[in-house]
Structure formats: C-alpha cells, structure tokens
Nucleic acid binder design. Structure first.
Lengths: 160, 160
DNA sequence: GCATCCTGGTTGAGAGTTCAACCATCGCGT
DNA sequence: ACGCGATGGTTGAACTCTCAACCAGGATGC
C-alpha cells in the first residue's frame, strides 16, 4: 500500500478544504436567501428545465445524482411547501411524477440570481480561463474514475 | 446580473457532480470499512498528528474547518465510542481538551490504509502531474476567494 | 470590585441524509 | 395463467448537521 507524499497530502487537503468551504458557503447563501438547501434547489432546476416541468422520480433522481430515498424525502418536503406536486404516472402504475408548480417556479426564479451571482463570484471570477479549462478536464477525469468503479462492480456480478 | 454561459454551466455542473460523487464515495467507503463518516475521521487524524494527541476544542475546530457546534456533537459521539476523551483545560477553565485514546488511535490506524487507497485510486491515479499542479492552483484560488469574503464582512463592521 | 462584553463550549430542536426494509407493479419465462 | 426476480417508489429509524439559545469563565473599563 502506497501512502501519500507530503506534496500529495498538501494538494489533497487543500482541495477538500476549498470544496467543502465553497459548498457550505453556497448552501448557506441559498438557505438564507431562498429558504432551501442546494440539493432542493437542484431539484427545482431539473424540473424547470424539462418540457412540461415534470419528471418521473427515477429520472429526476438521475438528473440530481440523488438516491431514490433522498429524493423521495426531498420531494415530500417540496410538496408540503407547495413548490411541487406529485401525480401518478399513466404508463406505469408504480411510477410517480413530480411536477413543478407555478409557485415553485416563481420561488426558483427569485432564488436563481443570488445563487448564480455567488457561483460566479467564487468560482468563475477567481479562476483564469486556463484554470477553467483545466478544471473541466479534472472533473471529467474524476467522474470517469468513479463511473468505471461502478462498471467494475457490475462486471463482478457472476454471469454478467 | 450576469448569467452563466452554456460553457460555464457545463463546467460548473461537471465540477459539482465530480466533487459530490467523489466525496459520497469516500464517505461510504469509510462508513463501511471504519464505521465513521469522513468528518469524524478528520477529527481523529488531526488529533493523531498533534504532539500529545490532544487539542483544545477550538483549535481542533479550526484544523477540521468545522463549527464549534458540529465538533462538540462529533466529539461527544467519538467519546461514546471510546475513541476520544475530554478533559478540562488547566490554563483556561472554560476550555476543554479532546484527547485521542489508544483505542481511537488503533481504529484510525486500521481505517487509514483503505481511505488512502481510495483517495489515491480516484484522485491521484486519474490525474496527470500537470492536472495535479493545476488543481493545487485552483484550490488555492477558490479558498482565497472565500476568505477574502470573510475579510470583507469583517471590514463592514463599523469602527473596525 | 463590579458591570460589561467577548470567548469557549455545550445543548436542543429542527432539518436533511442514509440505510435497510417494505409494498406494489412490471416483465419475463414457462 | 402463474411464479419470480427486477424495478419504482415510499417509509421509519438512526445519524449528522445547522442554527440559535444558553451558560460559564476570561478580559477590559471604570
């Protein structure tokens, strides 16, 4: 087993610090200005970008990179707020469809500018175009490394 | 107010996806193999690296970039597990000192290899040396952008 | 000495996440 | 038609985090 060098540790810790501080900052901003955490904001965004502003729970879960359970709890809360409604799926009786309400859309419209401004201010404004290009590549590489993980797991299943 | 371009959105979402998937993966690995979330692991690491394996709560909070409240809850749990003990601070009667127990150290030693391996596998193994250098700069820039935020807030306080 | 403010730390309630268990339905093979 | 494994989704309990309230002890000013 290979440990991390001092240099690797520095990079690793710096990365985690930056990322967690950043996302805590974003979460706090959204919670303060829009009364919801970022995970819930993402749900509203995903719905708002879909034609019909409605999606099946499982598709919504994929879009938000969320577990079914998490999404179910979250949508329950959003429904209680009146920002989303759930209705049955006509083609599959198991299914359930979440739809963004007009009020939910209005809330999202009100929340978006502050959120986008925060993202721009702390990400795009502090990085050079070159760093942004690098970040793009880094994100892809990390994501690819994680999804091949899943593939490997899937490949381990006998008779697959 | 300036919206994000399509390209910026792509980078932004890709970045968040990579980061959240990655840290969820790490959290799950630690939870499964060591029975604790990453935040708690970080606490044990910070203590283990301090001479005497003990730190005041406030210093520990800074090291872990954690709020006092979060740390207090976390250390309470770690104490219940027997991995940490709390004792009074001799120089400041308000203070409280968290100390890593031998059992806590043993648990940490057992957990470390799996954690390091996961980090290496999904971060250092998937990035080129050039990307790692870029990541270092990016992390610094983001962290700097967030701390100047605090400075500005501090500067806004009247008579400061 | 004492009033006042600040700092260190804890606590409790409320919100969000995780995990495993669960139910209903679908799809497929026979 | 029937059995059966896979899928879609929900639920409850345990856990973690956040936020605000709080208490105790230091520090400063008079």
């Amino acid at each position: 087993m290979r440990w991390l060098s001092a240099e690797e540790q520095r990079i690793w810790r710096g990365f985690m610090t930056a990322v967690t501080t950043f996302s805590e900052h974003l979460d706090r901003q959204l919670q303060r200005d829009a009364g919801m955490p970022m995970a819930y904001y993402e749900i509203l965004v995903a719905l708002s970008e879909t034609p019909g502003r409605a999606l099946r729970m499982s598709e919504l879960a994929m879009m938000c990179h969320s577990s079914r359970s998490r999404l179910s709890h979250a949508v329950a809360k959003l429904e209680k707020e009146g920002w989303v409604v759930r209705r049955a799926c006509p083609s599959d009786r198991r299914g359930s469809i979440a739809e963004l309400t007009d009020e939910g859309f209005a809330v999202l419209e009100a929340a978006a500018p502050g959120h986008v401004t925060t993202v721009r201010e702390h990400l795009f404004d502090v990085l050079t175009p070159e760093q942004l290009r690098a970040l793009d590549g880094i994100s892809r590489a990390i994501s690819a490394g994680l999804s091949t993980e899943c593939d490997r797991a899937r490949a381990e299943v006998p008779e697959f």
